[in-house]
Design a protein around this nucleic acid. Structure first.
Lengths: 343, 343
DNA sequence: TTTGATTCTGTGAACGCTCCCAGAGACTGG
DNA sequence: CCAGTCTCTGGGAGCGTTCACAGAATCAAA
């Protein structure tokens, strides 16, 4: 049982208290706190004991004031807010990043920049140096916040390849194109030939790359691309439903759909159900993400798993490296086909 | 276009720079920054202009060092992690709190205390004063973190009535009991008489209160409580499915189920489908939460809407008040029945 | 022993801000 | 016209750290 704040809120112990308790100077305590170089074993031990006895915790504000670092990072979301809490992937990512940072004792600041006002406020906050770096979740073309941060020289790691920015910005992404290829190959292997696609927004890498994978595989299989079989959504459930309705109208003979997100795939299932098509007998449906939505769907979705746990871990690793002075880096991680009931 | 950090990362302007630029003293600038009391209009204007010209942003570390406040609050999750990203309610809550805090220019630190190690680390962090207060999302009985924080005198607002803690802790909650009453009355109004219930964990207020509402209404309607019609889940989808299977086995004649969460209700729908029962014709199903899961379900769920936007706003309001020195407070907010396809 | 490096320790300066106090000036009321 | 009160301003002190530097101790090599 360590001594603690019994009763009225007392002033917490400072580095002075520890130094006095250990019979050494502030400097020595500080050295112990920061790696223990140039400290004798005896002093080391005395200081550690004193820290335990006093219940000392470093005051990060004082430290930050002089080091200029804040020892915290921001998790910045510049998407419109609805997307955030509708898309299960964000949660997994957020959780993964929080945990990976916690291992380094670095708190995560959640930042939502939905409106123009918020954008300005947050940009100010970040460029003022209140976080050491930013994990960016936004892949839309020409994001003004991302651009500003990059210009200000703030360490930055994006989730997914940021289209608009120069090549000088780090990112971690799943191999979208390869995942799409796997899925379309899978659909073809089931004997389907009229394979439709509901893409993501074409100003996002996920939108572009997954469509590219789709086209590549069809081309390789000697199937001509029918533009009637290609529609775009915005990753939302509703847009998936609308997209499928358009597909059914333009190409009633379709026998499979590759959907660029599980959430949109849910919408596709709804539309198919309304149209009286059975899944997978009449139309096979393939999703993307392997989010909780995939298991929630009826029938459960065959989908492409994005390795979110690894993505978040890599984002944190790359960001910390960059904060430590390393150069930006891009990391591409492999995906995996998960077969369920919808194909 | 304000002046900014063009080119190499320059030292950001300090309050001294602003003072010099405005031709006043640090003290005056500081007063302007903190509400502008006892400052002449002329000085006020000069300082504001200087701030704009220099692009000055207050250094929060320096401020915190002297005020002892950190001007940040923690959003603490002590549930096992899976629940976090499976339950859509958390997202809405997290988003609402972040935005409500942003309006006060207060950053939110996301904290996950899943393991024992994390719990200890986070408790230290918080009690060391690195956040001014904590928004707590955990309603399980006897949460050790919550108890420690309460003892340490950290301002605290829980989401949902915390069962284990004394009455001295603030909380904001939807009126669980009343919501449950509405739903069960609704089911009875449809002519159903064999109404089952899948409760939440009985060490959570949501579990206890919603069951209580169910029992009250049945009693008022003169219907005897049949314990065969009562099973418990843990708010997860899987537990809903298992619960419904048990209900079907114990009381095959049931014609309605009140489920204490939408996610569990999804599981119930799955089980009913497997058992060949039609919803709502054979069995009416009522959920709770009005989460995205309610609209995702097939058929779409009739449910009880929890006013999450108001809950998060109230949590922030009460927490800030408490940080400002006010006494703890409890806030109960009304719910609303949302009728969809499942009843 | 002397020299020079190497390891270890203590101490004054910052870091950028708010708090406090003293004092100047502008009013009021007697 | 002076005392009393209010508004407004400037500047010293200090918050709890790290950093730079100087000095002490230790040891090996000359």
């Amino acid at each position: 049982m360590t001594m603690s704040n019994t009763g009225g809120r007392r002033r917490p112990p400072t580095i002075h208290d520890v130094a006095r308790e250990a019979g050494v100077s502030r400097g020595t305590v500080s050295r112990v706190l920061n790696g223990g170089h140039y400290v004798s074993p005896a002093a080391q031990e005395a200081v550690n004991a004193a820290i335990r006895r006093t219940g000392y915790v470093v005051n990060r504000h004082a430290r930050s004031l002089i080091t200029g670092r804040s020892d915290s990072v921001g998790f910045l979301l510049t998407e419109p807010q609805e997307r955030f809490f509708e898309d299960p992937n964000f949660n997994v990512l957020l959780r993964g990043c929080t945990q990976a940072l916690a291992a380094h004792d670095i708190p995560l600041l959640l930042m939502l920049a939905g409106t123009e006002d918020e954008r300005r406020r947050i940009t100010r906050y970040i460029t003022a140096g209140h976080v050491d770096g930013v994990l960016l979740v936004s892949s839309h073309f020409g994001d003004p916040v991302a651009e500003e941060l990059r210009e200000a020289g703030v360490p930055l790691v994006a989730c997914g390849k940021p289209i608009g920015l120069g090549s000088k910005v780090s990112y971690v992404a799943a191999d979208d194109r390869d995942g799409a290829r796997d899925m379309v190959r899978h659909l073809l292997s089931l004997g389907r030939r009229r394979v439709g696609v509901v893409t993501g927004p074409l100003d996002t890498p996920g939108g572009v790359e997954r469509l590219a994978g789709y086209k590549e595989v069809l081309a390789e299989a000697g199937i001509e691309i029918d533009e009637q079989l290609v529609v775009s959504g915005d990753y939302s459930r509703a847009s998936g439903e609308a997209g499928a309705e358009r597909l059914l109208a333009q190409a009633p003979d379709l026998d499979a759909v590759f959907v660029a997100s599980d959430l949109m795939a849910q919408g596709v299932l709804t539309a198919l159900e309304h149209a009286g098509r059975r899944v997978p007998q009449d139309v096979a449906v393939g999703g993307f993400d392997d989010s909780p939505a995939a298991v929630a769907a009826r029938p459960e979705l065959t989908t492409i798993r994005q390795p979110w746990d690894r993505i978040s871990a890599e984002m944190v690793r790359v960001l910390l490296a960059q904060i430590g002075g390393e150069d930006p880096a891009a990391v591409i991680l492999p995906t995996e086909l998960v077969r369920r009931e919808s194909t």
